[in-house]
Structures are given as C-alpha cells and as structure tokens.
Design a protein around this nucleic acid. Sequence first.
DNA 1: GAAAAATATGTCGACGTTGTCATGCGTCTA
DNA 2: TAGACGCATGACAACGTCGACATATTTTTC
Lengths: 349, 349
Amino acid sequence: MVSIVSVAKVAGVSNKTVSRVINGEPYVTEETRERVEKAIRDLGYVPNMAARLIRSSRSNTFGIITDYVSTTPYSVDIVRGVQDWANANGKTILMANTGGASEREIEIWKMFQSHRIDGVLYITMFHRIVDPETGDVSIPTVMINCRPQTHELLPSIEPDDYQGAQDLTRYLLDRGHRKIGYIRLNPILLGAQLRLDAFRKTAGDFGLAESDLSIRLGMEGPVGAEKNYVFAVATEMLQQKDRPTAIMSGNDEMTIQIYIAAMALGLRIPEDVSIVGFDDFRTVSLALKPELTTAALPYYDLGQEGAELLNGVVAGSKARPSSRVVPCKLVERTSVCSLEPRTSGRFDL
Amino acid sequence: MVSIVSVAKVAGVSNKTVSRVINGEPYVTEETRERVEKAIRDLGYVPNMAARLIRSSRSNTFGIITDYVSTTPYSVDIVRGVQDWANANGKTILMANTGGASEREIEIWKMFQSHRIDGVLYITMFHRIVDPETGDVSIPTVMINCRPQTHELLPSIEPDDYQGAQDLTRYLLDRGHRKIGYIRLNPILLGAQLRLDAFRKTAGDFGLAESDLSIRLGMEGPVGAEKNYVFAVATEMLQQKDRPTAIMSGNDEMTIQIYIAAMALGLRIPEDVSIVGFDDFRTVSLALKPELTTAALPYYDLGQEGAELLNGVVAGSKARPSSRVVPCKLVERTSVCSLEPRTSGRFDL
DNA sequence: GAAAAATATGTCGACGTTGTCATGCGTCTA
DNA sequence: TAGACGCATGACAACGTCGACATATTTTTC
C-alpha cells in the first residue's frame, strides 16, 4: 500500500511536508505543494484513516444502532438523513442492528467502543420508549424516534405526533366536517395516544361534543402479530345511519381497509366520506385513488437533526439533555372534500 | 484510553502476553490467562481496531453503497441481510449512499479506500442495470439487486423475477384460470420484462392463446415521477363482457388500485376476480382484505448471499464473476379462488 | 542424565500518521 | 549590521497492536 513515505520520496520532501499538504496546513511553498500533489495523484495515494485515528484518537465516526423492525418501511429515511448529514460534514457511519436482541446490543456497544466511535445515534423504527442496553460503555448518545424511560437522561429527537394529528383534525374541521370518526392505532405504540389526545382535544376545543366523535380501536396486540379490526370497524362505522362525514385513521396502512370498506358499501371518496391517514407511507398514500391526504412523519429531518445534535454533544456543548420534537407535515391530496363554504380563519395562524 | 500496555502493567506481564490472551493464542498458563483477563475486566479494556488494522492491513470491514431511492421500501431488507451476516462473521459495516449523484459515488469509493475496506457491496434499491462509478479505485466488489452493463464483469446477485412470475402464473393456471389479465410494471424496471416474459411463456406453454391474455401497461415514465394508468386500465379490463377471471399485476402497489377498481364495479375478490401481486410489500399485501397472494422478493437472502459471496472473493477464491440468481417465494394468502376441481399435477414438481 | 523438544514469556521494531521541537533561510527593525 | 522575526522544512517520537525472534523454563526422549 502506498503511504505518506512513498509520496515523500517521490516528491523529494519529508513526510511531514506531505502531511502538511494533505491537511492544508500553512507554511508550504506553492511550488512544493504542487510537487507533492502531483506525487499524490501519480501514486494514487489515499490517507490511511486507521493510522490517523491512532495518532489523534478522534475517529470522526458516528455509530448507528437500529432495532430494525421493518414494519414501518419509511422510517429508514431517518438513516438516510443521518448519512446525508455525515456526508456533508465529513463523518463516517458505522451501522449495526440489534434485531431486538439485547445481548446483541451489548456486543454492538463494545464493537463501537473498539472502533473509537465519537458518538452513537440510537434509532428505533417506530416511535417508542426504550432503554439502551449500553453495557458499561459510555459514549455520547442521541436517541432518535424514541425516548429513554429511566433516570439516565439522554437527549432525544422525536416526531411531533400531537401536532400532526392536530393539523389533520383542524384541516377537517376547517372544511366543515362536524361528525368525525377515528380509528385508533395499536395502543402499544407511543404515537397512538398522542394522536388520539390531539384529535380529542382539538375537536373539543372547536366545540364538538364527544358524541360527534366515534372513536374505535383498529388494532391491538404485539407488533408484528397484531389483531386487525379495521375493516370491520370501518364498515360498521359507515353503516350507521348518522355516519361520520370524515374518518381519521391511525396510519395509512389502516386506511387501505377503510377505502375498501367504503367502496364495498358503494360510498364514494371523498364525496360521501372524506378520509385522512397518518404517516405518508407513499406506497399506500400515492397508490390509493383518490390519493390520500395525510401527515408525513419527518423521518429524514429526525435523522439530520439527530446527527447535528449528536455532533454538538460530542463537541462538548453541555446541551441540556432535553427532548426535541420535530413537526409533522400535512400533505394535502384529494381524499377530503369541503362540506360547506370554508369557515375561514377559524384556525388560521 | 486504556491500552494493552496498561493492562500488562496491572497484570504484571508483558504486553505481548496480553496480546496473546486477547487473541486466544496458545502457550499461556491458565493462571496467567486468568490474571490478564481480570485486569482486562477491571480496566474495561477494549482492543483498538485502528491499531490492529494498521499492523495487519486487514480491516475486516465491508462497505455498502446504496442508491437509496426509497420508493421500494422493503429493499432495505437487503441491508439487514448483509448486517446479520456481518454480525455472525465478525465483520464491520461501513455505509454510504449516493442519492444518485455520481460525483458522490466517486468520493465514497475514495472514502472506502481510505478505510482500507476489504470489499464493497454495491446495492440498488430496485432491480436494474448499473455501472459503478468506482473512479480509479479497485476493491473487490459484489453487486446486489443489480447487474453491470459493461465489460468489467463484477459478480452479481439478483432476484429471480422470471421464476417468481412463473410460479404465480402456474398458481393461477393450476386453479383453473384460463383468461388472465396482466397489468405491466414500468418498463424501465429490469423486473418488468422478466416478469412479463415469464407470464407469456408459461401461459403459452400451458396452451393459452395470446387472445386469452389481456396485457396492458400500468405505469411508465421516470422512477419517482411515473404516469399511473392502473386504475383506468383495471376498470376497463374488468368491464369487458368477457373479462378475465384473474389479474396479475406488476407489483403490490399497483394491486391496491386494482382492488379499488374491482370494488367500485361491485365485484367481489376473489369470487368474481382473483388477484395476485408481486413483491410482497407487507404494508400493502397484509393490509388489503382479502390479504394478497403475491411473490416475495428474496431481499434478505440477497443480502446474506451477497455478503457470503463477497467474503469468498476477498479471500481470493477466483470465483467466476457469474451472476447468481435467488428465487422468489410464492406467498399464498386469500385473494385467489379455484374455478374448478384442481387440475392437479399439471405443474407439480 | 544430557540432549532435544515443547511450553511459557519477553524484547523490539514496524505499521502510517501527526504533534513537538529544531533548524535554516530570508527580511525587517532600530 | 546585529538581533528579532516570519516562513518553510525536516528529524524524531509516539499512538496501540502484533509478528519475528530471543530467552527461559519445563517436559520428554533415549
């Protein structure tokens, strides 16, 4: 392997001078610099990170730990966000996933430590509460899409499920819907409660009575093996003589069944029922016709901001280990219609 | 940072002896070994990979390059497959994604080189033909879910789209379907042609005439901004007086619209039309009711086998740079019904 | 019971890089 | 014109690990 020494030899300078050129340090003549650069090109020299690390003990590397339950396919956008940030800032990414096994997790932390990682991003594939099994390893850590339960407060970045559901509810209210159905997400998901709370509160604040809201459970049970009531619940909801004019659902996946239930009853969307989803699973939200109005989880941004935050922590900013929250974005498509002249301004900013 | 030297000091032996213990070399007394191990535990010593690499110039690290068009959400299972293999075999994974930019790609290869990566897995998120932009870097490489176009033949691992479509077609024929509709995938996808060919050939071999097959284009245009005719095409197909008894579609995403089209026409699935998909996007195939019979792409296996193959290449097995193909798996659910007593054995193994 | 073999441990240097310090040279200041 | 200063470069050590080799101790062999 061609090293700094061979370059130095070819360029006729000392290895320290080559080092200076590589790192853009001052005090090198233009002429020397060019000679060295030519030698580098000619030899195809590439600096050896391992050697660099061994001297400076800064690896410029972040580790990513994921749990990787791939039921929520778009959450990998978090990783993409991190990678893009890392790329833009000259960091390297080491990746590992636990598959849920906690012995595995301990190994991973050891592995990270042995690579002298600068910091760790602990990423879960759905929004939840977890406690990282760090073993006795301590490396600066930021949690993304999850939050620690116990004492040891690690900074975390989470999606704002509450605000997302609030926006969707307002969107429906704004368009004149006064009887709204809500089919709930599996309650073991952290987002489920937040979204439901937002829905209730927002509708309540607007003046709707609890009787205007039909709130029903759509799924329950362990992730990956849940019981699914969505089709039945939606069918029932839509058969009431006083049926809702709009249905909100826990996520886009559930929405497919609501669509099918509606169509099976001969109802048109959005003329007869308006429907909104949550998550913006694009395989679903764009494939449904009419395309689905939904709230996009800010996965990519979570990744970017998480990396940014971790970088701050590593650099030593004594940042309060607070939990930051990133807003969801309402994606307006064509699954909702206005029932009456828009009651404008009611919820405008 | 605690190093081998501090351990040696505590244990009262030379650093070489510590090294021996760490690497499980012979010629160490049980008693010494225990003393050293205790010192390691007490100090929380973890070997420094960088230093190890610098000595042995084997990084035990694989790099992953992805293009990361996240339109095909489950293809990240490839990465999971690689990671699990790496974990089981003590390798580390460095990840980077191009986002499609080729300058970026060249940078990545440089970066990999500077980490003295042992080999590279070049992974695309949908099945296609690509030529890696390696710059002038040469590292052992295996391509997964894609295939090189030009001269420089790199080994590759691909899903067997042909066999998958063949299995699905046989499945329908076996159940008595003799008039079958087919809604084609975007032709710019490599799988599109393979799947269509398999469908045509298999139906033809069985004795169906071209007139028994209605083959229609469902999508076209650049990935991410394609034109979508699926709903219209499906509606039209199902309105023919002599309509097909079963419809195959390019992928599960398209299938949603076929379901909706069918329901809108008052047709029941599978009693009036049977439907099969392709890909097993579980957000869709499990969410549709009735659940969708489809062919699962072997993403996870692609990852595993790719890593395995790369390992062989790195170890120097002069393996022919052949293209290996991994079978798709038919996932039987409830979207297909039998039209007549099963013509058993026709296609049995 | 001496030579040979097997076992147990240590010394030293090298991997590729960069930080520290030293040196050489030209230019400015008083 | 001597001393001070700024710039350009080099010599050398050190980071943590392990391979090559050397040495010391025990066991086996005939």
